[in-house]
Amino acid sequence: MNKILISDPTLRDGNHAANHQISVQQIAAYCDGADAAGVPIVEVGHGNGIGASSLQLGESPIPDFDILRTAREHLPHSKLGIHVIPGFATIEKDLKPAIRAGVDVVRVASHCTEADITERHIGFAREAGKTVFGVLMMSHMASKELLAEEAKKMESYGAEGFIFMDSSGHFLPDDVTERVKTLLDVLEIPVGFHAHNNLGMAIANSIAAAKAGATMLDGTARGFGAGSGNAQLEVLVAVLERLGFKTGIDLYKLLDLSDLADRELLKEIPTIRSVSVVSGLAGVFSGFTKHVYRIAKQYEVDPRDVFFELGKRGVVAGQEDLIIEVASDLARKAKASS
């Protein structure tokens, strides 16, 4: 029976949807439920990972250490995971304290073509005896061959597993299948997939990944995550079980957890808004959605045009300031042509 290792980044990716305002009480409550349900890995922190709280990316009212300490206290069985993007997170200031706080799983991430920047962070976490995964974001921006080459770098640095993220929800199932197969041909470590739901494909894509040989999948309660959200965890687990994959998660307790998240965590359930469809088609990071809405309104331009223009420019997470530039350009052009 094929086993799938589930990671739940509700309290990390969901922080994008919550403007990074998830409280310690919400963290405690959610972790209690996740631990009881047997969720193997619970990932917490700022949407862009530890050390990323900032004016530009969104400020979290809670220091990383408090988030980690709270989660650790409420996860007696589940592994505690963090998302680490070198540049936002430094080894001294962020990674060392996180490991001291009891983190079990360190997921070191970069843009899909920049695996080189992860070497030191992967090496450090590995040396600290933690399980380390390499993560490549915005993976639709790299061919499957290039993605495999970048993943191979992470493996050589010491990553014990590799996960590719469909950060803008751009993939269709065949895209995922061929990437997983290419990765498995090249890598000696397990492969995982993290979906976004812009085109309503998060579950289908995750299942395609599993059928192609991926053994790690991400899902969030009610799909709580950036933009139109992630693969909905309770649905993902139910479908996997129906297909004969084992997750080790208690489905009833997971459903209870989702209800809890619905009550305690979500101000609004992620939906596929029109602009999310555009973001998925344009291949732009889902986490940009709120910013695009706000800035498009400010400059009186169509947010869909903003997304397509951002897609043409190949923007990546961390380049939120380009939204203003794009909206401003569009507004200027509109004014000139009127």
């Binding site: 193997p40 399980t131 014990e160 597993g161 397990p190 995982g192 053994t215 790690m216």
Partner: peptide, 11 residues
């Protein structure tokens, strides 16, 4: 099998 995901490949 010290890592969280099971590694099945043998070389």
């Amino acid at each position: 099998q010290a890592s969280v995901p099971a590694v099945t490949q043998r070389t």
